Amino acid sequence: MADERAERIAEFIGPLRVKPGSKVNLRRDFDPRYRAGMRKRDGIELLRTGVSLLAEYQERLAAQNTYGVLLCLQALDAGGKDGTIRHVMSGVNPQGVRVSSFKVPSTEELDHDYLWRYACRLPGRGEIGIFNRSHYEEVLVVRVHPENLVRQKLPDEAGGPGLWDRRYREINNWERYLTDNGFKVVKIFLNLSKEEQRIRFMKRIDLPERNWKFSAADVRERRRWDDYQHAFSEMLSATSTKWAPWYVVPADRKWFARICAAAVLAHTLMDIDPQYPEVGKQARKDLLAAKRELEHEAPAGAPADPYASRHPTADRAADGNDTPAADGRASGTGRPTKKKRG
């Protein structure tokens, strides 16, 4: 990554990355209120820069059509997943992004292996896929509520001791398989404090327009806070790998969480460094032939090539050389001139 911006971004997100092989204690190792000494008013401009970078690299990703990117977002209720997606992806082409949310599995989904429904929603080449909750629900919610295993109809030998270690291994292998086939996996955990979750729940109750976002089930899940903290710590320890690392993003300040998420995704795209495809010689000839035909259709007094008249270097690049066209046209500033006879 020659781009200096990539180096600055890598330095910024370094403290958020879970080192592969490390033993994570979420309460001890990551502060939900961390903000890297940044102020909110400075963060607004940084977020704009991050969104602009994402738009630039997403276009190149789609044009190259070789790699795909899967962004997995995990958080407790009110962690800010929806807002992060909305703000971070605000500047990208929606045709190249697909967001999938995973709720309680359907009967059809339960008739397959636990990774099947996630595999069905993977992005294609040139696309960014976002999982709002992801396959990690299978080692989080299912672990905190083991009664869900009954609904998965596992054979006797598939349950019991070693189940979670086996699922960690299977998920790591699946993500390695995706990476080896050109699909980068980037994983963000929005780390929310218990008090900030309480505040956000209260806001959802107090504001009528937010009531729809609140469910009594949210409070029931909150009672299992310690169980979830343990499950998250185990998950981060076991599944942050060199090919698919976890980033723990402080989520108590929404503006900072969005900057971090944009930086992590931008870093992934810049690491891929997708390039616009170069056309072959025959395709170049066809382009120039079409260009000449369109130039001859220019109305009297109008530039033959309006874009090149304002950007002369673009016209020379299109012709494949650094000299004006041989037909007498002055860098696209007018119609081709007729040669004098005699």
Rank of each mutant, 00 (worst) to 15 (best):
E7R: 04
I9D: 01
A10H: 06
E11Y: 10
F12Q: 07
L16G: 03
V18K: 00
V18R: 01
V18A: 05
K19I: 15
P20F: 04
V24G: 02
N25E: 15
L26P: 01
P32N: 09
P32Y: 03
A36R: 14
R39K: 14
K40D: 12
G43S: 09
I44N: 15
I44F: 14
T49C: 13
T49Y: 14
V51N: 02
L54Q: 03
L54K: 02
L54I: 10
Y57R: 08
Y57T: 04
N65A: 14
Y67P: 05
L71M: 11
A75S: 08
L76E: 13
D77V: 05
V88S: 02
S90P: 07
Q95D: 13
G96E: 01
V97K: 02
V99L: 06
K103Y: 10
Y114S: 01
R117N: 12
Y118F: 05
G124H: 12
G126Q: 07
S134R: 05
V139R: 00
V142A: 03
V142H: 02
R151D: 00
Q152I: 01
D156L: 10
A158L: 08
P161H: 15
G162R: 13
R169F: 06
E170V: 01
I171E: 06
W174G: 01
T179V: 13
I188K: 05
I188Q: 05
S193E: 09
E195I: 06
E196S: 11
R198F: 10
R198Q: 14
R198N: 15
P208Y: 06
E209N: 15
E209G: 13
R210F: 05
R210I: 10
A216N: 13
R220G: 12
R222V: 07
R222F: 06
R223Q: 12
Y228P: 01
A231K: 02
S233K: 02
S237V: 06
S237I: 04
S240L: 06
T241S: 12
T241Q: 10
T241R: 07
Y247E: 03
P250C: 09
D252E: 11
D252T: 10
K254V: 15
K254L: 15
A257V: 10
R258M: 11
C260W: 00
V264C: 11
V264E: 03
V264Q: 05
M270A: 08
Q275V: 02
Q275K: 04
Y276H: 11
G280N: 08
Q282M: 13
R284P: 03
L287A: 14
A289R: 05
A289M: 15
A290Y: 13
R292W: 15
H296I: 13
H296P: 07
G301W: 04
A308L: 05
A308Y: 00
S309D: 10
R310A: 14
R310L: 13
P312V: 03
A314K: 03
A314Q: 10
D327I: 00
D327R: 00
G332M: 05
